[in-house]
């Protein structure tokens, strides 16, 4: 199975990606980079879906939900970037710590 590659190695890659994303979300000061961190974490989850999905070709749940995950991530990025551009118009910065009010 899996071309002779152990299943754990897929999970190790996904763990590394998840922790990179977590680091980006915690430290970056630019909302677009925080968004990239979130995307890395979503990709780690999709990699897990896909690697376990290789063991189920009848119902194929892993690959199906990987595709749904990609769709949700793409839609989320579109809305988040629209919000970021609005925030930039209003505050003239996209540093998440500088945004301290929600009044339009």
């Amino acid at each position: 199975m899996l071309n002779g590659i152990p299943l754990e190695h897929f999970l190790y890659i996904s763990t590394a990606l998840f922790c990179c994303g977590l680091f980006a979300v915690l430290t970056r000061r630019n909302a677009v980079m925080v968004l990239i961190g979130i995307e890395l974490m979503i990709n780690a989850a999709i990699l897990n879906f896909v690697s376990f999905g290789a063991f189920d070709k009848i119902k194929n749940g892993g690959q199906m939900f990987a595709i749904f995950g990609i769709v949700l991530a793409a839609a989320g990025v579109a809305v988040a970037l629209a919000i970021i551009l609005n925030v930039y118009k209003h505050f003239k910065t996209i540093d998440p710590s500088a945004i301290d009010e929600m009044k339009g």
Binding site: A54, G62, Q63, A66, V77, L81
Partner: peptide
């Protein structure tokens, strides 16, 4: 390598073709 060809192509089309370009616009 996990036999998910269709997911791989979707990843390239959606992420590489769409999301990265959107993020460049955002930046």
């Amino acid at each position: 390598f996990a036999f998910a060809d269709f997911v791989a192509i979707t990843q390239i089309m959606v992420y590489v073709g769409g999301i990265v370009v959107l993020m460049l616009f955002g930046i």
